[in-house]
């Protein structure tokens, strides 16, 4: 993986996709231990689409955050339940960063958007709020440069790596 691709690996449409009402989970690892998983509750993409910031609850994500501190490697999967569209991003420079103004509102918007997408499957907003619940002071952010991106929508293109976008 090359953390310094010549241009962004995701396009504007893909950036909008991962910032929308989609499920987002991250995986981390460290030598000699099992990987860890944590669910994120919001995502931002930098204007040049090279850097992604995930917001997540620190308590349930403690082990994954610990891995980030040690190895800085990360994989994040985004999926839209209603379409199965799935994208995985990877990074090798992940770091924990402070929240920015507006991040709490971003989390609230995210919960509403994701709840709207899964409503058709019979999941109530109350259910989605429980699933994604995090106390505001428990939220942290993890930022990384997109080093690789893969289509993971089930089907013939699954696993295909995205090339750099001009």
């Amino acid at each position: 993986m090359n953390a310094y691709a010549a241009s962004a690996l995701i396009g504007a449409e893909q950036a909008a996709f991962i910032c929308g009402g989609v499920g987002m989970s991250m995986a981390t690892c460290r030598p000699g231990a099992l990987p860890n998983i944590a669910r994120a509750t919001g995502c931002k993409v930098s204007s040049d689409r090279r850097v992604v910031t995930l917001i997540l609850a620190a308590t349930p994500g403690a082990a994954a955050l610990d891995d980030v501190r040690r190895t800085a490697t990360i994989a994040v999967v985004f999926t839209q339940p209603s379409t199965h569209r799935t994208l995985q991003l990877k990074g090798t420079d992940a770091r924990i960063v402070p929240l920015e103004p507006g991040d709490h509102d971003l989390v609230e918007r995210y919960v509403r958007a994701f709840a709207a997408d899964v409503a058709a499957f019979g999941f109530s907003e109350a259910y989605m709020r429980a699933l994604l619940a995090a106390s505001p002071d428990d939220l942290v952010a993890v930022e990384f440069t997109i080093a690789a991106a893969f289509v993971q929508t089930p089907g013939p293109r699954a696993g295909e790596a995205l090339a750099a976008n001009a």
Binding site: A27, P35, N36, K90, T92, P154
Partner: peptide, 22 residues
């Protein structure tokens, strides 16, 4: 089912991977 699960694995060179479980 209902809510699809995830699986995280690690490559031999220490890169994590995460996928949905049907």
């Amino acid at each position: 089912g209902g809510v699809p699960g995830n699986i995280a694995t690690v490559s031999p060179d220490g890169i994590p991977n995460i996928a949905y479980l049907s």
